[in-house]
Design a protein around this nucleic acid. Structure first.
Lengths: 176, 176
DNA sequence: TAGCCTAGAGAACGCGCGTTCTCAACACAG
DNA sequence: CTGTGTTGAGAACGCGCGTTCTCTAGGCTA
């Protein structure tokens, strides 16, 4: 197996397992079984579980934010589109809340790289919102609505949280 | 040691340990050491770690919500007071985010009693906000701002998230 | 004092997991 | 063909932890 292919398969397996079940509930042997990559190669590619978790979070951050940005750009950069995208995400089968909030809540300050990746993700989201509205406080408020909607949708299972948050967001934007 | 005293000391130890370090990072022996209660009595009082975690969450829910309600009631039941109280909490030494979001993200669907306790807490918060504003959608939006502010303050360490959320909340309330 | 119940200290058990090690199979250079 | 290096399968190791068990000391009753 190619080096590159092994890395992709490892990250794919790590993402589906860690995101669905949580980091601590998944063992390295589960990652090996799902990826089909031997333990030896696994540890040759990522020197530790922490490194694998960090790499998973970083790749997911890039994809998540990229998907959101493309979706919103295709709709003229409206703030409402952000929450429409969230609504689609919430309704999808493999929605299990925010991977970064989950990982941070689980490992917290116990793992500096993970905490740093989670902070970087939230900062990237805030900067994207800032580009949309060009207002520091409003961007921070929208970010809170996004996080609050994610938490609400994850805990209640109701994708309608996106529409509720969208209405609040538009009221805040219109006020300016 | 009295039965009642042991239970209180166990819940005190469990709360300080679980809330600060997370559930999985704390062993039952840590709880024993901090509480001063023997393992035998610990398992006589709570039959499993899951039972202890659930009891910790339930007691914390009652205290947290009670504190918030009293604080807000003493200030005439204004929505702004909710976020002032959050601001004081965020600035306190032992703030480590929302115990329920953290526990849910950590154990998730892996523990039904914990998930249920977390949902009950968020539902209690939403009902309290509903009593303040008498509007379903607005109460849900305020709950999202509360959760978003908690997540933001926990991850960035900035207690100013409360004031940012307060401004958004007042804009939403004023709009009605 | 003798017998008995309780409770605490902590050893022990079973298991899971992160990480490393062993060994056999195989590809390929000479 | 023979030696050599690489790879995968999975055993092994060390450790931590949830839970239970053992043993001992002390207090109560007769």
């Amino acid at each position: 197996m190619e080096r590159q292919e092994a890395e992709t398969r490892l990250l794919d397996a790590a993402e589906s397992l860690f995101y669905r079940r949580g980091v601590q509930a998944v063992g390295m042997d589960d990652v090996r079984a799902v990826s089909g990559v031997s333990l030896k190669r696994l540890y040759g590619t990522f020197p530790s579980k922490e490194a694998l978790v960090t790499a998973y979070l970083e790749r997911r951050d890039l994809r998540w934010t990229g998907d959101l940005e493309r979706y919103v750009a295709a709709r003229g950069g409206s703030v409402g589109a952000v929450f429409d995208w969230l609504g689609e995400w919430f309704a999808s089968d493999d929605f299990h809340g925010c991977a970064f909030i989950n990982a941070y809540g689980e490992l917290g300050d116990g793992s500096a790289p993970v905490a740093s990746a989670a902070r970087a993700h939230k900062e990237r989201l805030r900067r994207f919102l800032h580009r949309l509205v060009d207002d520091d406080e409003l961007a921070a408020q929208l970010a809170m609505l996004v996080d609050g909607a994610i938490v609400s949708a994850a805990m209640t299972g109701d994708p309608g949280a996106a529409a509720t948050a969208r209405a609040a967001a538009e009221a805040l934007v219109r006020r300016r």
